[in-house]
Amino acid sequence: ANDHIRFDFTHFAALTAEELAKVEDMVNDAILAGSPVITEEMSIDEAKKKGAMALFGEKYGQTVRVVQAGDSIELCGGTHLDNTAKAGSLKIIGEASVAAGVRRIEAVTGKAVLKLMNDRQAVLNEAAAALKTNPNELAAKIEQQVNDMRALNKKLEKMGAKVAAMQMVDLFNVSRNIKGVEVVATKLDDASADMLRTMGDDIKSKKDNMVAVLSAVNGDKVSLLCVCGAEAVKKGAHAGKIIKEVAKIVGGGGGGRPDSATAGGKNPAKLEEALEAVNNIVDAML
């Protein structure tokens, strides 16, 4: 069309950013060369002698339309500009696979390139304004923000570890003895699945005679973890079987090894009921 192009070609791998840039430069060089576009009709034999390129699979009659722009000579029935410069410029906006061994380049031309550039500049200006900088310094500002976020996340992880350690002390104090095994089941506030695993590993290493079911709610999802110390496993505790029963109550499922298992659920409203069931589940297992 007058403002965009699709070009399919045979190739068995995605073009790299460098290759796309080279293609774009080659096309724009041809546009800026300002070559006249010459259209002629002639016999197919004359066209072949002239060096016109025919597309594989196309059917041509005895009389064909030959289009020449600079060094390019093709058989084509489409309409064309009378000079390549009138295309203005070209900007590639996409490259993807459309079939086995066939790739497609999509691009905009002429005023559509200016609109694309203006739209992208507007996005850059908005992003720069949000980060309180100017577009020329946006990349450096983003890198700084990413580094600041990484540092902040590390601080949060350390704080989370400290909070987890404090919560573990509380857990040990409220555990219930069932047939010689300490059992605890609780919900942790603002805890991620990773934090649950970290706490579970600490519990196993410090309390080999404990069964612990830890849970957290994030949005409408329930995360569950069960760990059983080595001595608790010897007495019959099995984390995978425990977590499976608990998860059923909160509308989920899961499982795992005798010493560690995870599960998820979709009904946070049933979490308290699920945690209260842990003692009976463990009691029936030992």
Rank of each mutant, 00 (worst) to 15 (best):
residue 23 V to R: 07
residue 51 G to I: 07
residue 13 A to L: 03
residue 48 K to F: 04
residue 54 A to F: 13
residue 9 F to G: 02
residue 52 A to V: 02
residue 11 H to P: 03
residue 26 M to Y: 12
residue 31 I to P: 03
residue 14 A to D: 14
residue 18 E to W: 04
residue 18 E to M: 06
residue 44 I to R: 13
residue 56 F to V: 14
residue 33 A to C: 04
residue 6 R to H: 11
residue 18 E to A: 15
residue 45 D to K: 13
residue 9 F to H: 02
residue 24 E to W: 06
residue 39 T to F: 00
residue 41 E to C: 00
residue 17 A to T: 12
residue 39 T to C: 07
residue 25 D to F: 08
residue 36 P to V: 00
residue 40 E to W: 05
residue 19 E to F: 05
residue 55 L to D: 02
residue 15 L to H: 05
residue 39 T to Q: 09
residue 6 R to T: 13
residue 28 N to A: 01
residue 3 D to F: 10
residue 48 K to L: 13
residue 51 G to F: 05
residue 54 A to C: 07
residue 15 L to E: 02
residue 13 A to G: 05
residue 26 M to V: 13
residue 47 A to K: 01
residue 30 A to H: 10
residue 16 T to A: 07
residue 36 P to K: 07
residue 21 A to S: 15
residue 5 I to N: 04
residue 43 S to A: 06
residue 19 E to C: 07
residue 50 K to R: 14
residue 39 T to I: 15
residue 45 D to T: 12
residue 18 E to F: 03
residue 10 T to F: 09
residue 24 E to F: 03
residue 50 K to E: 10
residue 15 L to T: 03
residue 33 A to G: 15
residue 55 L to E: 10
residue 8 D to W: 01
residue 55 L to V: 15
residue 15 L to W: 04
residue 31 I to R: 00
residue 21 A to N: 11
residue 32 L to R: 15
residue 7 F to R: 06
residue 30 A to P: 00
residue 44 I to N: 06
residue 23 V to G: 00
residue 17 A to Q: 13
residue 43 S to H: 01
residue 2 N to W: 08
residue 5 I to A: 04
residue 33 A to R: 13
residue 54 A to S: 12
residue 17 A to K: 12
residue 52 A to Y: 06
residue 15 L to A: 01
residue 28 N to V: 05
